[in-house]
Amino acid sequence: MVGIVSYGTYIPKFRIKVEEIARIWGENAETIKNGLGILQKSVPDFDEDTATIAVEAGREAVRRARIDPKEIGAVYVGSESHPYAVKPTATIVGEALGVGNEYFAADLEFACKAGTAGIQICMGLVKAGMIKYGLAIGADTSQSRPGDALEYSAAAGGAAVVIGNDGVIAEIEGTYSFTSDTPDFWRREGQPYPSHGGRFTGIPAYFRHITSAAKGLMEELGLKPSDFSYAVFHQPNGKFPVRVAKMLGFSTEQIKQGLVVSHIGNTYSGSSLLGLCAVLDEAKPGDRILLVSFGSGAGSDAFSLIVTDEIDDFERTPKVWDKVMSGEFIDYGLYVKLRRKIKFG
């Protein structure tokens, strides 16, 4: 039985409100909040990046798993903001977690779904008996051009999951991916900020891939929306996941617990995984959870998980929602300094 053995999360403490960003760019904050379903987003400190977020999330996951880090046979870090363009984040994580030297490792990039891609790779390795445990992390300090619509949502955070077949708290009963070549959002080599296709990111990208993957998985497993206690969809804003849930026949009640975007923004590779972790914080044995990520470019990974009895003995504090709701507000000036948007000549 392959599944999630443990999970950990990290969200930087700083927050910036939509009002503060809108104030700078002369836009109407209420319109944006209503349009995006986002009130504020998380901002990394000057000494935080994808590697530090991945390490902190990874450490929480390994500590809660109560396993020897040396039993981890694979580390995959999914991000679109790896601190190095060439040189892996995964080795920084492996070293900081004390995994040793005998482990499979790579950095992954598939826009916002690189973290779930890591889970699938780990599942395969566990099932093949090549590793005992695998660590899959989705983490980002996502970039956005000053003044761009993305600036309201591009946030920082990450989640780490330990995959294995021993001490599983949530069995993965199936996974299914839907992938196509759809350039809805991209960042060219050497460019500091990503570009996107505006409204093109909606129907042909987000909605098509998520619905296709979700339906494909449910069909394969013979399940319907009402079989799930919870559903988590990639959350680039507060609106898309609500709409896609409705399109697929899921209720607001099913998605509420995992919808963390309104208070931290879009954490990209961390996004759907943070939602999943927020659900696991509350889930009971027997609960079935649907997780569907989305990565621009484009693809969706769908997972069906069943929570096991092991979760009752699993340490689940501090909770994701406590991390989401805490924080310290900063102004736009400090934000541009922390995000290194000031050019010194």
Binding site: D45, F46, D47, E48, D49, A51, T52, V55, E56, R59, P83, Y84, I92, A96
Partner: peptide
């Protein structure tokens, strides 16, 4: 786990 610094914009990062 945090960043301490870096060897300039193109250098290695000190964690």
């Amino acid at each position: 786990f945090r960043k301490y610094g870096e060897e300039g914009e193109s250098g290695i990062i000190y964690y």
